[in-house]
Design a binder for these strands. Structure first.
Lengths: 176, 176
DNA sequence: AGGAGCATGTAACTAGTTACATGATTGT
DNA sequence: ACAATCATGTAACTAGTTACATGCTCCT
């Protein structure tokens, strides 16, 4: 159900079409909750029925019409109510960790290569986050931006932790 | 499809019934891949049809019969082949992060409480991992245990990173 | 007498993925 | 001519969750 909430947060920040949301879910908010356009359109339809969002058709020239969604008062209430409920503490669910765990039954060389790939990918993501932080939050953070900033900080710490772990593994595996 | 691989890894370590696997998925391997017993029985059935595992009915006295699953040669091949393929780099998918991101639209006090709850939960998990590491790997780690050890190291780093992030948030929010 | 543990399932549902579909405009 | 961007969907499928079901033994 949390795609609904992610959409509500995104629309509370700024109204958008399904297409706009899809792009947002490819970056910013999508860094910690990804969604395909198919899923987004499906959920938007359900949310419109539930009066959490309302749609307005906007005609454009040279481009197809679009349905711009706006959060409703009900939607804002739902969002606030949701923040009051305790969030279940999530467990990790990692394909990669399962594979590491099964290392002894696999191909050691291929796995070292794969660990290196992951290291590079996480380094890339970290660089992206750091650039983003430097660009958007060079000084004090406004109350309005605090949530986005804190999540970005979480992303940075996560990527750093991953890189440290991946490096630790590479070091251990190099000496065998 | 990765529950299959998680089960293969677990059965490669030691044969087990669906019930045994369920308990394992409540601890050890379940720390980074959780699964319900319903899902486990369903997947075991599919895997048996695909000859990745084979079952033997074991009669017990004072307890119900059980079907003990063993990994087959095909299963071991599948596991090895899987380790050779590159693992897609996963993005985070976090309800909690979405909620933090939407902080400005929610109840600040409730969220501070929730962050505290998460902090405690992650501290508890970290303590558990540290005790596990101290108990099982006080000295050198054998080749056989390396995968499990490295994943445990990953878990420790992950929990530490989370706690640091949660503390950072609590500190920032206390001063507003 | 009641609850916890052992043991295995079915049924109904929700969320999410993958593949396919359409059609206009703008840039190379 | 061809690809990319804008824009919105349907259809078929897979994975996972929640609720329900059964029945025996051991412990308090």
């Amino acid at each position: 159900m949390s795609l609904e909430h992610a959409i509500l947060v995104s629309l509370a920040e700024r109204s958008a079409s399904g297409y706009d949301l899809t792009r947002r879910f490819d970056k910013s908010i999508g860094h910690f909750w990804k969604a395909s356009h198919q899923q987004i359109y499906k959920v938007l339809g359900r949310m419109e029925k539930g009066d959490l969002v309302s749609a307005a058709v906007v005609e454009q020239d040279g481009r197809p019409d679009k349905r711009v969604y706006e959060i409703t008062a009900d939607g804002r209430h739902e969002l606030r109510d949701w923040t009051v409920l305790p969030t279940p503490v999530e467990r990790l669910r990692s394909d990669f960790a399962v594979k590491i765990r099964g290392m002894q039954f696999g191909d050691r060389d291929a796995m070292v290569t794969d660990i290196g790939r992951h290291r590079d990918a996480h380094q890339g993501q970290l660089d992206f986050y750091l650039a983003d932080a430097a660009k958007h939050y060079p000084g004090d953070v406004s109350d309005e931006d605090l949530g986005a900033y804190l999540v970005l900080r979480g992303g940075i710490r996560y990527e750093q932790g991953q890189i440290e772990w991946l490096d630790e593994m590479l070091e251990r595996l190099a000496s065998r």
